[in-house]
Design a protein around this nucleic acid. Structure first.
Lengths: 295, 295
DNA sequence: ATCCTTACATGAACGAAATTCATGTAATCC
DNA sequence: GGATTACATGAATTTCGTTCATGTAAGGAT
C-alpha cells in the first residue's frame, strides 16, 4: 500500500540483494540510471558511502552493512504497519512470518502444514515466510516483531507473549551402531551407567542436562541433523524426538536406550505477541491452527 | 533526515493533534488546501475515512483512532531508524526518550537532572522526552522501543535489557494525623498490630504486600501523590519513600511508624535495551549518568 | 429566514522532483 | 587494444505535490 514511501531504502536493499545496480533494474522495474541517482541521494542524506561498485565488483562498506541490516528491519516493520492499517478496512494482507524449530515436520499430529493449507485456501494476499531457529531466538523474534507466530517447545514463557498448547513430542536417548551400549542388554542400561558416556546436547534443550550429567565436556549442537550425525559416529549418546529417530532405528543405525527415566515429553506451543493479535492475518492463522487440532 | 518520507502520516498526526486542518497549517507550514489533499490521499490509500471534519467540528472515526495510535508509533520508530543511520556518520541526533517512576526528583543522590545537564551541555541536537510510568510499563516501553532508557526500582529484570544500579531509596510505613496509630507509643507498633489496619498499596510495589497483609481489601494506587492523599485521609496506612514523605512529616501531617521490619530499601537501576546501546545518544546518556554518580 | 463566518473541498496553474534517454568513463577480460 | 561490463552524468520529460482562487456546506447572529 505504501504509506511510507521509501524508494531510497528499497532501492538500497534491492541493490544489495541483487549484488549490483544492473540486476536490480528488473526487480525494481526502473532504469539503471534511476538506481544510480537513488543510491547517490541515499549516500548524500546519510553522509557516507554505503557500497563500492563499478567494474571491480559490488561490495558493501562497513557502515553499509549496518545500514542494510537496519533498513531490512525497518522495511519489515513498515510493511507490517501498512498491513495493520489495511486490515482495518476489510481484506487480509501483508506478511505472515512464522518461526519453527527444526525437524518437526515429521512429528505426528503437528498442525503446521494443514494449518497453512487451511489458511492459504482462503482468498487472501498474505506473503508467508517460514524461519527455522531455536526457541530462544524465536521468543526474541516474536518480541521484536521479526516474527508473528512461532511454534516450539517453549520451556520458559514470557509475559508479553500468549501461548497455546498444540501437541507433544516424546524424546528418548539414542546410541549409534558403533557405540558400546548398542549391544548391551536392556537391564544393564541404568542412569548410573550412562554417566560414564559423553552425551551430545541440543543448545536449547535444558532437559538433557538434567537427565544425564556427562563426565566429560559434552558437545553442543544447534540442529538435530547435526545431533544425529554425532550419534551415528558412535562416540556420543544423544536425545532425539522419537519420530525423528525412527528413520535411523529402522535401518539399524540407532538403538533406543529403553528406560523409564530416559523418556520425556516436551510440549509444543504456538506463540504470538499479545499486542499483535490485532493483525487479522495473525489472528486467523492462530484460529486455523487450533481448528486443525480439533478435527 | 527523512529517509522514509511519510508526509501523509505526519499530516494526519498533526491534524489530529491540532484538532483540525486550519490550525495544522502553521504547524506543517503548508496551506489548508495541501492538507486537504493529503488527508484525501491518505483516506484513498487506506480505503476508509479517518476523521469527520467540517463546520460541525473535528473528530476521529473509530478506525481513525487506531490508525492515529499506530501512526504515532511507527513515526517514532522511523525517527529512531533515521537517528541510527545518521549517527553512523558522526553526529548525535534524534530522540532520547527517558522513562521514570513518579516523585523521584526529590530523592537525594538521584542523578537524572545532573545527567541531563551534562548530556545537554554537549553540542548535540537530541530531542529529549521524559515519560512517567510504572516499572512494568517502563519495561514494556523499553522492549517495544517506545523508550530508550528508564530509571526505576526494577524488581524483576528481563534478559533483553541491561541494568546498572544507580542509587537506593528508603521506604517506610506512614500514617496520617487522623489515624488511630498517630498518637500510639512506639512500643505498641508491632507488625501484629498493623495487620488490623488497612494498608494502601502502590500497584507496582510488591514489597508492601509482603510486609503487611491487610485484613480488609486494600486500595491500590498507581501514583504516590494519590497514596499520600489516602494516608492523609486517616483511613489507611501506606508505604512511602522517606524523602517524599518528609514534607508531610515536617508539617505534622504524617507520622513514621518506626519499626525495623517496616523499613526497606529499594534499589534504582538505569535500564536500556541491549541491542539499542548502539544508538550513540543512548550510550552517551548512560555514560553521563554513570559519570555523575562517580563525582 | 437571511447573511456572515468558519472549515473544508476542488480545479487549474505552476513548480519541483524524479525518471528516462542518450552518452560518457573506468576497469576488466580476452 | 578492442570489446564488454558496470556505473555516472546531463538534458529532456514526465510525474507529483503545492499554491491560488474559488466553491460548498453547516452553524450562529440578527
Amino acid at each position: 500500500m505504501k504509506l511510507l514511501r521509501n524508494t531510497l531504502l528499497e532501492t538500497f536493499v534491492a541493490v544489495v540483494e541483487c549484488g549490483g545496480f544492473s540486476d536490480a533494474q528488473h526487480r525494481l522495474g526502473i532504469t539503471q540510471s534511476a538506481i544510480s541517482c537513488r543510491i547517490r541521494d541515499l549516500e548524500i542524506t546519510l553522509g557516507y558511502r554505503v557500497c563500492e561498485r563499478g567494474r571491480g565488483g559490488f561490495c558493501l562498506t562497513e557502515r553499509g552493512k549496518i545500514a542494510y541490516e537496519k533498513a531490512r528491519d525497518v522495511l519489515r516493520r513498515v510493511r507490517d504497519f501498512d498491513s495493520e492499517l489495511t486490515e482495518l478496512r476489510d481484506n487480509i494482507s501483508g506478511d505472515l512470518r512464522i518461526g519453527i524449530v527444526d525437524t518437526i515436520s515429521s512429528l505426528p499430529g503437528f498442525p503446521l502444514v494443514p494449518a497453512m493449507q487451511k489458511f492459504l485456501s482462503r482468498k487472501n494476499e498474505v506473503q508467508l515466510e517460514v524461519v527455522v531457529a531455536s526457541p530462544t531466538d524465536l521468543t526474541q523474534g516474536l518480541i521484536t516483531g521479526l516474527l508473528h507466530v512461532a511454534i516450539a517447545p517453549f520451556k520458559n514463557q514470557v509475559a508479553e507473549l500468549s501461548y497455546a498448547e498444540i501437541c507433544t513430542e516424546v524424546h528418548n536417548l539414542y546410541c549409534g551402531r558403533d557405540h558400546p551400549l548398542f549391544s548391551a542388554p536392556p537391564e544393564e542400561i541404568t542412569p548410573d551407567i550412562l554417566q560414564k558416556y559423553p552425551v551430545c546436547r541440543r543448545a536449547y534443550d535444558p532437559g538433557t542436562a538434567a537427565l544425564v550429567s556427562a563426565s566429560e565436556p559434552s558437545p553442543v549442537v544447534a540442529n538435530m541433523e547435526a545431533m544425529a550425525m554425532l550419534i551415528e559416529s558412535g562416540h556420543y549418546l544423544g536425545a532425539l524426538p522419537d519420530h525423528f529417530a525412527q528413520a535411523w532405528v529402522q535401518r539399524g543405525a540407532f538403538k533406543e536406550l529403553t528406560h523409564e527415566e530416559l523418556r520425556w515429553t516436551s510440549t509444543f506451543y504456538i506463540a504470538a505477541r499479545e499486542s499483535q493479535v490485532q493483525r487479522r492475518a495473525v489472528e486467523l492463522f492462530l484460529q486455523d491452527t487450533m481448528g486443525v487440532l480439533n478435527l
